[in-house]
Design a protein around this nucleic acid. Sequence first.
DNA 1: GCCAACGTTGGC
DNA 2: GCCAACGTTGGC
Length: 155
Amino acid sequence: MKYWLMKSEPDVYGIDHLKAKGKPDIWEGCRNYTVRNFMRDQMQPGDKALFYHSNAKPSGVVGIMRITSEGYPDPHQFDPKSKYYDAKSPQDNPRWLAVDVEHVETFNRVIPLSELKETPGLQDMAVVQRGQRLSVMPVTEAEWEIVLELAKKSL
DNA sequence: GCCAACGTTGGC
DNA sequence: GCCAACGTTGGC
């Protein structure tokens, strides 16, 4: 089982949206080849992911979800009315993938990016690296454990 | 709203 | 295949 961190803007789709869904929902709209390759080659049902709110006040980790599907073609790439439409993606060889995720837990607090940056053991975590813009990135088991400990801590 | 970082596109 | 221009992300 692998661990991930997945970013979304809470104004667009936050952890409350996923929780309210009450069942697996599609994680759609990833339009980056590195992320596509993660979904194609590495993500498996049962993997767990940190839900990260970006462009938020503050930005940070807000909870946990579970991956419930393998990567499959993101239907929005074929929908001309969708903002995720990609006219260059062949129907028979889809360029973009999505996965299904389900809500597991919402933390009692947001763990802000600034706190991740100052926490010993997380200095190599992908999300704290300068210029790191991937919306999906791997998390090591050690980093996962540390973040879960932070989540338990009250301020 | 600014702007640094960096992925993607397209001219050559 | 290089690389400049452009677009997007996302912290601040």
